[in-house]
Design a binder for these strands. Sequence first.
DNA 1: GCCGTTAACTTAACATTGATAAGTTATCTG
DNA 2: CAGATAACTTATCAATGTTAAGTTAACGGC
Lengths: 220, 220
Amino acid sequence: MSDFSSPVTGGRKKRGEGHTRREEILQAAKELFLEQGYDSTTIRRIADRVGVSAPALYLYFQDKEQMMLALCDQTFGHLLESISEIEKSVSDPRERIRQFGEAYLRFGLKHPDEYRLIFLGSNIPESMRKVGHRMPTDDPTRPGVGGSLVFQRLIAVLVEAEAAGLKLNYPADTCAELCWMGMHGLASALILKPEFPWSNRDLLINGMLDMVLKGIIRDT
Amino acid sequence: MSDFSSPVTGGRKKRGEGHTRREEILQAAKELFLEQGYDSTTIRRIADRVGVSAPALYLYFQDKEQMMLALCDQTFGHLLESISEIEKSVSDPRERIRQFGEAYLRFGLKHPDEYRLIFLGSNIPESMRKVGHRMPTDDPTRPGVGGSLVFQRLIAVLVEAEAAGLKLNYPADTCAELCWMGMHGLASALILKPEFPWSNRDLLINGMLDMVLKGIIRDT
DNA sequence: GCCGTTAACTTAACATTGATAAGTTATCTG
DNA sequence: CAGATAACTTATCAATGTTAAGTTAACGGC
């Protein structure tokens, strides 16, 4: 119950420094979302932690949802970086797909809270449930499209793999969806139910990767 | 916006007839939850549809969550029935697994709110978030355990399949987990992102079922 | 130096939410 | 018919997201 979460900020911002306040708000919001979930985190508590009044948040964000969206894009950025790395360093198509999936998984397991926040819609209201994936034609600067960028990379990898001679069992987009669903199923299970007595974590990870590759790539 | 949803009920209930009012409330709550989702459905709107005052609902349910839980158990009862049906009518192990998965999937897609509640812990307080899977020793009459019963049936089906001579790629419990993760990944994706332009729903369902079976059952 | 513009805030308030307290009405029992 | 009580209502609560309207203080131009 103790809510003495220090207002760390100095007082009023100088004239051009509004954006630093914006980042303070994002930081506080992220902490609270992760600690207590979206619903339980109130505008007032975020404001308290930052050290400003509640309506002040509306100077920087249209509403509560926009704070969440901004955080989502921020986190997706990190994932995007690590998969770009793979696309550069790994050339074999099959291995690329596998490492792609592995990177996605590693990301989820290394940042379980962010993953929950972004992919699992945990405690996220109706209007937000569409955040993860949007149409390719959507404005890429619009908040909340980070997820679709990751997904588009996956499709691209599969299309390239096909062009490189790999035979797929379904159209590339369907394969991408199946791949993502398998990875997501594993990640969300391990993250959402850490207390469940999973038989063997590494076996599950390798098993899922094999399963996805077998399901997607035609038997030679 | 038009909310003229007829108060169908006659007036005050007679002395022993409280339980019928309880069922009217459940029915109204179910309709509204399915129409508008859990969050958007307010106690007052449920009460309006039934034709009573809002506090009257608290005569029959401890709180809003209990209404949803009652509906969940009710709905999961139907899933349990349909998988029992399969266990009785389908003897081939491989086909059993497949139909089991398909039933699970179609159930999830038909009851997205219940699915989200039980398996994704979305929109519900912390106390509920681990409901989906509990230890076998949990009280089976407690509200909200329907999900774990389903999972236990899946394990049983796989163990029986193995006993019937089917060769699995991993231990039965690992296979059960992989199977569930694949199904869950697909279900949660379709449910959480309904507006995403999924390539082809039926293709995805069949693809995932094939993928899971290929991943779990050893190549002949 | 001071003055006006305006960025960066605050206080007060609103409607809506889930939920409770306390009182009222109607039905059954003896 | 009288008292108990199931079945309900009205009034109210505190908390929520959000807005309106006013206040303070930093900077540029004169």
